[in-house]
């Protein structure tokens, strides 16, 4: 885990520093002397391994992520992140938190009513929502549900708080969640349909439980365990989808920050954003692993993974 993170940071740093062109190449008005001062200030005059050493030392020992050099000149990168992360996380976690229960519910309904109209409709919607990219939905929603009908604000209202804030985030969150909801639905439907056909469900019914009791106590609980498997890819999916969505709805979050830092060649910022994304996805893996331990007694007690 830590090793992976270290590798990512190293590769990220090297890629960004070794990129063709100087970071100040386009600032034509600067004199050579000024440039030298700046380069010295940010250690750009030293060999790259030394730069990396300094970067890593500051990061680990002082929690210093460097300083923004273009967009927020002189502002520590960390402060910029502190400003943006909550906005993005609000969206992404919100989307994750509504996707799971809705998807689970739809999946259960589809599995229990297998081969019914409800099931077919759900399956049809699932194909569409899984296939069509979230930014297409975002565009659709923005045009119809915001611009044409005026139900929602067209873009995010940064100054809003409380309900108004949620209101202005409704469309982005819906656009972000449709895909994940469909994924969870599809997964749970397949999983539960299989569980329903399992021997222990049959035993549950033959020992006198009603079908509903059997599905509730044995089917659903058991199908939820492997759901943890889809949460990781789902969350990374939400995060990358959110980059585009943030752009469409002008939400000042990490996605927008990454895009503009790349376009403005503000590399310390880019690097920090990339590290942030890596950390989040590693943490997701960790959380899911821990969750497995809690839900699945075979791992908790047996200390081994299910085959």
């Amino acid at each position: 885990m830590v090793i992976t993170l270290f590798i990512i940071i190293t590769i990220g740093f090297m890629v960004i520093r070794l990129m063709p062109g100087s970071m100040y190449a386009d600032d034509a008005d600067m004199t050579a002397a000024q440039m030298e001062i700046l380069r010295a200030k940010y250690h750009l005059d030293k060999p790259i391994p030394v730069q990396y050493g300094i970067f890593l030392r500051d990061l680990v020992l002082k929690g210093d992520w460097g300083t923004s050099i273009k967009m927020y000149i002189g502002v520590p990168v960390f402060d910029v992140l502190k400003m943006k992360i909550p906005v993005s996380m609000y969206n992404n976690l919100f989307s994750l938190l509504i996707s799971l229960p809705i998807g689970v519910l739809l999946g259960i309904i589809a599995a229990v009513r297998k081969n019914s109209i409800v099931d077919y409709t759900t399956s049809f919607m699932v194909v569409i929502f899984i296939s069509v990219p979230s930014f297409i939905f975002a565009t659709l929603l923005q045009y119809y549900a915001a611009f044409r009908s005026g139900w929602f604000p067209i873009i995010y209202e940064a100054s809003a708080t409380g309900f108004a804030k949620l209101h202005s985030l409704t469309l982005p969150i819906i656009a972000l969640s449709l895909g994940p909801i469909a994924r969870v639905t599809r997964y749970l439907r397949a999983e539960l349909a299989e569980t329903i056909n399992s021997d222990f469900m049959l035993l549950a019914r033959t020992k006198g439980l009603t079908e509903a009791q059997a599905i509730l106590r044995h089917g659903i609980r058991n199908s939820l365990v492997p759901l943890a498997n889809v949460v990781i890819p789902m969350f990374t999916h939400i995060m990358s989808g959110s980059m585009v969505i943030e752009r469409i709805f002008s939400i000042p979050g990490m996605g927008g920050l990454m895009v503009s830092s790349i376009n403005n060649t503000d590399y310390p910022l880019t690097l920090a954003v990339l590290i942030f994304y890596s950390v989040v996805s590693l943490v997701t893996v960790l959380v899911v692993d821990l969750a497995y331990g809690v839900i699945d007694p075979r791992i908790r007690i047996g200390g081994r993974h299910i085959e």
């Binding site: 590798i7 960004i16 070794l18 990374t236 990454m258 790349i262 990339l274 994304y277």
Partner: peptide, 15 residues
């Protein structure tokens, strides 16, 4: 595989 797609693809294209 442990690196997020966004990060890998971005770094690749940046480079």
């Amino acid at each position: 595989d442990a690196m997020p797609d966004v990060v890998v693809v971005t770094l690749f294209i940046l480079y």
